[in-house]
Design a protein around this nucleic acid. Structure first.
Lengths: 205, 205
DNA sequence: GTCTATAATTTGATAGAC
DNA sequence: GTCTATCAAATTATAGAC
């Protein structure tokens, strides 16, 4: 399947094709030939522009990992109230993933496959989640008696789980519950308000 | 790395080794040589017992997918109260996954990589989750006024997300929060009571 | 059933013409 | 920069002795 936008440079065509193929098939499952076909160019060009498969993969993976986290720190480290942070986090995260629904599974899978590579030359300090301020804020709200006692870490886990997991399990839902693409999107849109409500109901006194 | 239990038959040794290697590296990343090494036998034996890589993979994947779902229907279709079902589901699910922490990522990833194979010759009717009764029960409890209004499907999504996702994101938590293996296990043990409490607090009127 | 040796195939990578 | 043709390495699969 070849879809080429004529105004794209060759390098851009390669990157777009590589992203598509790597995200679908993973580093080990992706074939250089598939990427070349998808980009509508020759296989040799991939090596001309990116030297080898690993280098090309690193570019794609770094970009993917960066996209999965970046805006979150803006929310985590802002001066919003706890409830407002929960709401904004949910909306922003679900919106990001709606545009890249297969990114979470791809990224988590590649981290699992090769955690060393992730640590040594993929991960950037700036992108690392820094949830400390958020965790402290939860602790303070508990001490002030504004919300129920709960382990801040568990609450953070809950928040992230509720936002991301449905996207990773998408194929299963579509199979078992007969949910089509449009219905799935609607479900996720609905979650942007459902999840914060659910969490706040759970912790409010 | 070769660990061999002497009382295992060759076939059992192969299956145990294949499970380990496939779950770690995925279908495309796993090498027949790795599996042979892990089993402490010769590569040719793999083909003698299972003909080819694909057949061997299917056996492993089928078993893995079955393990990820089976007991759930016992809970879903039982006559317990809604709150009891939520509690039992959580405990049983987390216990199963604690013994096979990498199964969810493996299974969801392989389904995503090749959904056709999953549908055509992996999936068994008996293992399919049948959440209808559970969804109906939620609907009834809402109508009776026992719990808050919530989309039954969203509630089911929440329940499953809260149980499974932390295992899939495990490498990230370990990296970012400096959580070691023991601490992670303790967190998940804690979740067996935290998650039902969280959910029930969220939906109770 | 189990092994060694080897064939067959796939696939990443390069050489060299244009 | 781009292509065709080809190589080299990795990996699945089989043949055949024991």
């Amino acid at each position: 399947m070849v879809k080429v936008k004529k105004d794209q440079s060759t390098e851009e065509k390669i990157l777009a094709a590589a992203k598509k193929v790597f995200v679908r098939s993973g580093m080990t499952g992706a074939r250089m030939q598939d990427i070349a076909d998808e980009a509508g160019i020759n296989k040799a060009m991939l090596h001309y522009y990116f030297r080898n498969k690993e280098k090309l993969f690193e570019v794609i993976f770094r970009e993917a990992a960066a996209k999965l986290f970046p805006k979150l720190n803006l929310v985590f480290e802002s001066d919003l109230s706890l409830f407002e942070k929960i709401e904004r986090f949910t909306v922003q995260y679900i919106d990001v993933i709606l545009e890249n629904p297969y990114l979470p599974l791809f990224v988590l899978n590649e981290i699992h496959r090769d955690p060393e590579a992730f640590l040594t030359h993929i991960w950037q300090r700036e992108n690392m989640p820094r949830p400390e301020k958020f965790l402290d804020q939860i602790e303070r709200e508990i001490k002030k008696g504004n919300i129920k006692r709960i382990s801040p870490l568990q609450l953070l886990l809950n928040l992230i789980s509720l936002c991301i997991f449905p996207f990773m399990a998408r194929p299963m839902f579509q199979i078992h519950l007969g949910v089509d693409d449009l219905q799935f999107r609607n479900l996720m849109q609905q979650r942007k308000t459902e999840v914060p409500r659910f969490i706040i109901d759970a912790i409010r006194k």
